[in-house]
Amino acid sequence: MDKFALYVPQLLPFKEHFLPEAHRACMGCGIALGVRQTYKALEEKNEWMERARWEVPFKQPLPGSLIKDTKEVGEETRPALLHLEKDGQAHLLICFDNEAVTAKPTPAVFKKTFPAAAAARGFHYVATACPSYPFDLIDKVRRGMESEGNSYLHILSPCPVGWDFESEFTVKIGRFAVESAIFPLYEVVTGTPRLTIDHPTIRPVDQYIQMQKRFNHFKKKEILAIQADVDSHYTKLQEGKL
């Protein structure tokens, strides 16, 4: 062992549970990356992994309490959901959000509602995560499984095909989403949100929007409105309000 033998990524288990033989994701898929990191977080808990249940996004209602808040989202465009069980009961619900909402392609509308709705409906642990910050994501999956009550995790998964950007920018675009505070990373424990990654300088939303061709139709006025919306949401989070 020389002095370069121990960088942090190597502390993770090297065993893979989510191999390309089992999925047909496009190249540079954000969901595949998120699922792979999630499964790495559940290492050595085989009973959790075996009982994990996928909810495929086509024409299926969301579980129980979240239905009412998502009426405005089209039936065909619901995100992929992964249910994890602990002690025979549903425990952690993970939403892999690739923003395939056809009706309203505006950022920061959909993502604000989901975690807030989950927190309002009495989930014990609610958090947002992004595969561009792998250790943050892995921590949150573990914390979600260890919490006493039900937990909910919302994962932003960039989609090169749907968002229309080159596949090599998947990780970078997720980082831009967090740095521009359009998708802030926070966790809600007993009703109080806490930012887990709080950048000292916030990027303009413009930089995030111009990386993707799906927002090409936006005019300057609309971008300014989004910026104001994002800023007010972020200030509220910093003050500890949802």
Partner: peptide, 10 residues
């Protein structure tokens, strides 16, 4: 190991 960590296809 960053490349290993960010590879979506393992």
């Amino acid at each position: 190991g960053l490349c290993y960590l960010f590879c979506p296809d393992a």
